[in-house]
Simulated assay, not measured.
Amino acid sequence: MYVAVKGGERAIDNAHAWLAEERRGDLAVPELTTAQIREQMTLAVNRVMAEGSLYDPDLAALAIKQARGDLIEAIFLIRAYRTTLPRFGSSLPVDTGAMACDRRISATFKDLPGGQVLGPTFDYTHRLLDFMLAADGDVPAAPEMPVDPAPVPHVMSFLNSEGLIAQETCDGTPAPDLTRAPLELPAARALRLQALTRGDEGFVLGMAYSTQRGYARNHAFVGELRIGTVPVEMEIPELGISIEIGEITLTECETVNQFTGSKTEPAQFTRGYGLVFGQTERKAISMALVDRALRWEELGEDDQGAPAQDAEFVLYHCDNIQATGFLEHIKLPHYVDFQSELELVRKLRRDATGQGAE
């Protein structure tokens, strides 16, 4: 039970004013613009868009500014705003095979049609502080590289051509929309993937790491990691055609996982899958590992009792907004609840010492 704090309205107004002052910081320092956040904190913007389920870099940048850099608070702001938007239609499934790749690597095949494209990555940096950034030094321009706009094939197609990887099937049933209906179990793979792509990056990373350490025997190779832009199309029923309404940046990861086969299936590889808004490769790889771990039952594997194999545990706890709401509600007044428990403990102590017999 919650009770109002005496004088609470004025106190809350003052807290909001103080929060705004703290957000602004030293007035002698120029204020960050949303354009600066959008262009120079791109990875934070991408995470807010992915976990907020709304692709809009400008709004994500605004949410980060308003939240003082607290990404979970920014995700909360984006999700809340998203609920106010009308839905006037659905886009067609994007074709990631037509992606214009800025980055495309494979840990399973060295030589690929289209080549390995390292792209912008921290992978080969030395993790040393660059004090030139503190001195506002100029960033040297990247060398001009020829860009081939032609789409490049998915690496998995090479394994598929030999029948060495399990075929993915789809019965055409529309997947439930997790942004409009609550999660229900048992959840099909499409719904699980929705939950993972908007789940907390740290939680999904922790689950993925647990699979690599043996909690699900999920040894995987990155078959392909690609980052780039894809067109988004929408059907216009009145015209009987589909038109391109824009393009978005996506990170896609497919992992190759070991699978020994069964009495009815030949030895083959299986896969895990991750697809996330923006350049969000750590999340996409983590998502692919957890996706594969959750597929144990459909692939006829043993349940080892690993956390990453438990769909209820993973899917009900990966959402950082739900987790934050439940966690932070204990800061709210619980005076009556606590007083009742306090009186109960006092009574039990009196009874134990015989003082309650009087």
Rank of each mutant, 00 (worst) to 15 (best):
H219G: 09
H219M: 12
F221C: 03
V222E: 14
V222F: 08
V222C: 14
V222S: 10
G223Q: 03
G223H: 06
G223V: 07
E224G: 02
L225P: 01
L225I: 08
L225V: 01
R226W: 02
R226L: 13
R226V: 09
I227G: 10
G228F: 05
T229D: 07
V230Q: 00
V230W: 00
E233G: 03
E233H: 02
M234P: 03
E235L: 06
I236G: 01
I236L: 09
P237R: 13
E238N: 07
E238V: 07
L239Q: 13
G240F: 05
S242H: 07
E244V: 15
G246P: 05
G246H: 02
G246K: 06
T249A: 06
T249I: 13
T249H: 12
T251P: 04
T251I: 05
E252L: 08
V256Q: 00
Q258H: 11
Q258E: 08
F259S: 02
F259L: 01
T260N: 12
G261C: 11
T264F: 03
P266V: 01
A267K: 05
A267M: 04
Q268I: 01
Q268G: 02
F269I: 08
F269L: 12
F269G: 00
T270V: 15
T270L: 01
T270P: 10
R271Q: 14
G272N: 09
G272L: 09
G272V: 00
V276F: 07
F277H: 12
F277S: 12
Q279D: 15
T280N: 15
T280Q: 14
E281H: 10
E281M: 09
K283V: 10
A284M: 07
S286D: 04
S286H: 10
S286Q: 12
M287L: 13
M287I: 09
M287C: 14
A288Y: 02
A288P: 07
A288E: 08
V290Y: 08
D291M: 12
A293H: 13
A293F: 08
A293T: 11
L294D: 07
L294H: 11
W296H: 03
W296S: 08
E298H: 02
E298M: 02
E298D: 04
G300V: 06
D302H: 11
D303M: 02
Q304I: 05
G305C: 03
A308V: 08
A308R: 03
Q309F: 00
Q309V: 10
Q309R: 12
D310L: 00
D310I: 04
D310S: 06
A311I: 15
L315P: 11
L315V: 09
L315K: 01
L315T: 11
Y316A: 02
C318A: 15
C318P: 00
N320T: 15
I321F: 06
Q322V: 10
Q322F: 06
G325A: 13
L327Y: 04
L327D: 11
E328V: 07
E328I: 08
H329W: 05
L332W: 14
